[in-house]
Design a protein around this nucleic acid. Structure first.
Lengths: 234, 234
DNA sequence: ACACTAGGTGTACGCCGTAAACCTGTCAAG
DNA sequence: CTTGACAGGTTTACGGCGTACACCTAGTGT
């Protein structure tokens, strides 16, 4: 009676392990604590299990990361499944839906970019996107360039070369500090800190994202209309 | 005589260590062997020194990485120092010059994006860029949005969500494999593999970069001309 | 001549990913 | 009911990582 309980042979949390359970736990963990917290040992502990147990369900850590992005991309594909209407607003809606998914998983962009092999979910997303462009009258060739032009923006995010996730304590002060060495930055900061759209904080990422996206979409449309007929040599 | 040679007390390679020498060695090492090869121990060995010696010149590994990007950005600032002429070609030249620097240091984008604090060299680069826009008649406010729209493209690179550094062995075969699940991708691949501009390999990154850059620059110009007067509320 | 100190070395710690051997509960076949 | 295979856990161990801390030593200013 002491040795054999019928259930929960160890202090294992939840039911048996499975690839799916491991991946979902990893995603949740990264959402909670950041991607750098996700180590094999800590993830295992979170699942009430020893580290090596994970290797029965994922080949190694790289495979774990692959699986994590596939979970996120599944979410993206689900969230962007509905389509219809003219290409431009449809694309816009789709990309902004993808953006919401990425905002829920802030670690995902970095991991996605570190993957070497696309994976089925990414192909599925691109296939749908390409479909939208083709329906919109883009040639196959131009569509190819267009995907490159969108880059990661197609997935609803862009990496900025600095971290503006939280505002500086005092933008105006910062501006004054920079005035000596970087007069143009200082002037810009001053303007930004007075600006209406930043009353809610620092840079409005959503506005900036849509601003750039719209410029791009309109530019792409213009390219489509300018296409001579079929061939675009470099 | 056995114990005290006058010079080169140990098998130390080169002269005394210094922050500058450490950073330059690290950059060279990353160029040669990739950023993941740059560990404190291996970098030290390369300099003919023990790992802990490095800590007399850089505070820790994060500071080492900070220093490495500052070296690269110095290069960028030097390479883009000459300016003049109308804003659009000037900006284009500058960004493409920055791109050449980044191509020489393929690890730099990833490290740059992982930095949390801009650093003086990045400020210097942005200050110059902002100057170009202001000279071009952009308002301070619009310039701010424009920098966000450029994102890392301002530094001459973009992260693509897949690795197309080398072409697949047989694009046409790949296309046929995908035809079942991803008909649109397959069609696009087929076109791309027949296309003139890829006779030299796979995607022509330089062409794609300039294509997107030009769309963006023209879109930005259009925004400038459309600016009502001063205020752009969100 | 001598103490100071900048800049090295040596050792050790805790964490990482993961290889290899081992253990055990479950279940199908005899 | 016994038995044996095996899926899915545990244990132990290894090499590599960043780096704290104690120590040593060559060169310098007084």
């Amino acid at each position: 009676m002491t040795t054999t309980e019928p259930d929960a042979a160890r202090t294992r949390r939840g039911p048996r392990l499975s690839t799916d359970r491991v991946l979902r736990a990893a995603v949740e963990f990264a959402d909670d604590s950041g991607i750098e917290a996700v180590t094999m040992r800590r993830l295992a502990r979170r699942l009430g299990v020893e580290a090596m147990a994970l290797y029965n369900h994922v080949a190694n850590k790289e495979a774990l990361l692959d699986g994590m992005v596939s979970v996120v991309l599944d979410e993206t594909n689900d969230a962007t499944a509905d389509v219809g209407g003219p290409w431009k607003p449809a694309l816009r809606r789709r990309i902004l839906a993808a953006r919401e998914v990425m905002l829920r998983h802030p670690w995902a962009p970095g991991v996605l970019e570190s993957r070497t092999d696309p994976g089925a979910q990414l192909n599925r997303y691109y296939d749908a996107l390409i479909g939208l462009f083709l329906d919109g009258g883009f040639s196959l060739d131009l569509t190819h360039h267009v995907l490159h032009a969108l880059g990661t923006r197609a997935f609803g995010y862009t990496h900025e070369p600095w971290d503006d996730s939280q505002p500086p304590p005092d933008p105006a002060l910062l501006a004054r500090q920079m005035a000596g060495d970087y007069p143009n930055i200082a002037a810009m900061l001053e303007t930004v800190s007075h600006d209406a759209n930043t009353s809610l904080g620092w840079c409005d990422d959503q506005f900036e994202f849509e601003f750039a996206l719209d410029i791009l979409l309109e530019g792409l449309e213009r390219s489509r209309d300018a296409e001579p007929s079929r061939t675009r040599t470099r």
